[in-house]
Simulated scan of single mutants.
Amino acid sequence: MTEQPIHPDVRLSDSHESVQQCPYCDRPFTSDRTHDLHLGEKHEERLGETERVQYEEASEEEEEEIFIFHIKMVILIGILWAAVVMLYMVFVS
């Protein structure tokens, strides 16, 4: 049974150049990391040892970036909350 392309209508804009293309569904990617993540998530059963290691590294990088983003958002919410409380204290008193 041949696998049908997952996203046959995916096209990159003229300003983006394809760095990688999925060997299984021909989907284009603009970075090696997104290519590795795609392979690990959509074609996991077909991965060789090298591709599996690349997927795990890309996945760890993404988890770290998401964690840092969440920390930044918590800090921002804290700052905004403190600003609201200060403004409330100034204008209500």
Results as ranks from 00 to 15, higher is better:
Thr34Leu: 09
Ser93Arg: 15
Asp32His: 04
Pro23Val: 02
Glu62Val: 02
Gln54Tyr: 03
Ile66Met: 02
Ile71Glu: 09
Tyr24Pro: 01
Ile66Cys: 05
Val85Phe: 14
Glu49Gly: 03
Trp81Val: 03
Val74Gln: 15
Glu65Ala: 10
Val90Gln: 14
Ile66Asn: 11
Ile68Phe: 10
Phe67Thr: 00
Tyr88Val: 09
Val53Lys: 12
Asp14Ala: 08
Asp9His: 09
Arg11Gln: 13
Thr30Gly: 07
Glu63Thr: 04
Asp26Pro: 00
Ala58Phe: 00
Met86Thr: 13
Glu49Ala: 14
Arg27Cys: 00
Thr34Cys: 03
Glu62Trp: 06
Cys22Ser: 05
Met89Gly: 08
Ala82His: 06
Pro23Phe: 06
Met86Asp: 10
Val53Tyr: 04
Phe69His: 14
Glu64Cys: 10
Arg11Met: 10
Leu76Pro: 05
Pro28Glu: 02
Ser93Pro: 06
Val92Cys: 10
Glu41Val: 05
Ala83Phe: 09
Val10Asp: 10
Ile77Asn: 08
Glu65Gln: 15
Ser31Glu: 06
Ile75Gln: 15
Ser18Trp: 01
Glu3Cys: 09
His43Val: 06
Ser93Ala: 12
Glu49Pro: 04
Glu60Thr: 03
Leu80Glu: 11
Thr30Asn: 06
Glu62Asn: 04
Lys72Tyr: 12
Glu62Lys: 10
Val74Asp: 14
Ile71Arg: 14
Val84Ser: 12
Ile66Pro: 03
Thr50Tyr: 14
Ala58Met: 01
Met1Ser: 11
Lys72Val: 08
Leu37Met: 03
Ala58Arg: 00
Arg27Leu: 00
Glu17Arg: 15
Thr2Val: 15
Ser31Ala: 10
Asp36Cys: 00
Val85His: 08
His70Arg: 12
Val53Glu: 15
Thr30Ile: 11
Arg11Tyr: 07
Glu56His: 15
Leu80Tyr: 08
Gly78His: 08
Thr34Gly: 01
Asp9Gln: 03
Gln4Trp: 07
Val19Tyr: 06
Asp14Glu: 14
Met1Asn: 02
Glu51Leu: 13
Glu63Met: 08
Met73Leu: 12
Glu56Cys: 07
Ile79Phe: 03
Leu39Thr: 00
His7Gln: 13
Ile71Trp: 07
Ala58Lys: 01
Tyr88Gly: 07
Arg46Asp: 07
Met1Lys: 05
Thr2Met: 15
Glu61Leu: 05
Glu45Leu: 05
Asp26Val: 05
Glu3Ser: 07
Glu64His: 14
Val84Asn: 09
Val85Gln: 11
Thr2Tyr: 13
Glu17Ser: 08
Glu17Gly: 08
Ile66Trp: 05
Glu63Pro: 01
Ser13Met: 03
Leu76Arg: 14
Ala82Asn: 12
Ile77Leu: 13
Ile66Val: 13
His43Ser: 07
Leu87Val: 10
Ala58Leu: 02
Arg27Met: 04
Arg52Lys: 13
Asp36Gly: 01
Gly48Ser: 15
Asp26Cys: 01
Ile75Val: 12
Ile75Pro: 04
Arg52His: 05
Glu41Ser: 13
Met86Gln: 06
His70Tyr: 06
His7Arg: 12
